[in-house]
């Protein structure tokens, strides 16, 4: 892949700038074993979520009270819970909930943050002042508490949790996109496009926004780690996906009661959350080091 896109080629358009920026990344990535680990874990998670029915050895919802509280063994990799359900199968299906939560929040938050930030930075003046003031206000809200109140008002459920988390997580993206847009709008190629008579909308979406995407993607990846934790907290409080859905946070909440005698019921879902969140942090860190020279660790 890197052979096809020589990185020394002069950058003319934003699209090719992104592509040619990707080439050396693969090279550097191979020298970041820890970061690669993160990528690998996310890949496994994605596979588990996509092919859950093929991978999970048992039905995640079928109860078998004779087999309740079996410790982890070869037939039940992560043991069974109070209803005799196979915890490993539930974790595999739970990956679907986790992934879809993350994707939904990211798909809501990414475009909103990007547009608010880019418009703010590009237009400037009063628009900028008003948008950023609004962003600052939302940024100063305590996210978990607000999500909690929001979920309480709308009724518990995965959809509410997604909206609640999205409401408070776009400002960070907007801030970042604005900072990028402020730099990009003064570059020569934007000035050139302007001279050619490109309309403001064209400048905004074809020339400026694409250049802000790499750092927005990095920030979104780092955000995902936080989203998992907030979503799990809401699940733990009973405000996320409802039982019997195998949501990881809710599994900890119900397993907590049996913790003293059957540790695996609560420990396993927690490990799943920890590993997933850790992987997103690692990937985000690595991407930042690779994509953003200002943050590079030497």
């Amino acid at each position: 892949m890197s052979a096809q896109i020589p990185s020394s080629e002069p950058v003319t358009r934003p699209r090719s700038a992104i592509l040619s920026a990707l080439a050396p990344i693969w090279e550097k990535l191979s020298r970041e074993p820890v970061g690669l680990c993160g990528f690998f874990v996310l890949f496994v998670l994605l596979v588990l979520a996509l092919f859950a029915p093929l991978i999970a050895p048992y039905d995640p919802a079928v109860q078998n009270l004779q087999a309740a509280f079996l410790p982890p063994s070869l037939s039940h990799l992560a043991g069974t819970d109070e209803f005799g359900r196979d915890i490993f199968s539930r974790l595999v299906y739970g990956a679907r909930i986790t992934i879809s939560t993350i994707m939904s929040v990211t798909l809501i938050v990414g475009p909103i943050g990007l547009i608010v930030g880019v418009v703010s930075g590009f237009v400037g003046g009063r628009t900028d002042a008003i948008l950023m003031r609004f962003t600052d206000i939302v940024l100063s809200f305590p996210s978990l508490i607000l999500a909690l109140a929001f979920a309480a008002a709308l009724g518990a459920g995965l959809g509410t949790a997604v909206i609640a988390i999205s409401l408070t997580s776009w400002p960070a993206i907007a801030r970042l996109a604005r900072a990028e847009a402020l730099i990009v709008r003064n570059t020569d190629y934007v000035a050139a496009a302007r001279l050619y008579g490109a309309s403001p909308m064209r400048l905004l979406f074809l020339y400026i926004a694409p250049m802000c995407i790499p750092s927005v993607v990095v920030r979104l990846t780092l955000n995902m780690a936080g989203i998992i934790l907030t979503a799990a907290s809401l699940g733990f409080l009973g405000l996320g996906a409802q039982p019997p859905a195998p949501e990881w946070g809710a599994m900890i909440s119900s397993g907590r009661k049996f913790m003293l005698d059957h540790w695996w019921v609560a420990v396993m879902p927690g490990l799943a959350i920890l590993i997933t969140s850790l992987a997103f942090n690692l990937v985000g860190d690595t991407l930042r080091d690779l994509l953003d020279p200002r943050h590079a660790r030497s």
Binding site: A232, S233, W263, G270, L274, N281
Partner: peptide, 22 residues
């Protein structure tokens, strides 16, 4: 610090109680 960023605090609490209290 990475683990601290990634750990679900309520789960850590449960595990802590089991180990250090029980």
């Amino acid at each position: 610090s990475l683990v601290g960023h990634s750990i679900p605090v309520f789960w850590f609490g449960v595990v802590g109680l089991v180990i250090f209290y029980a």
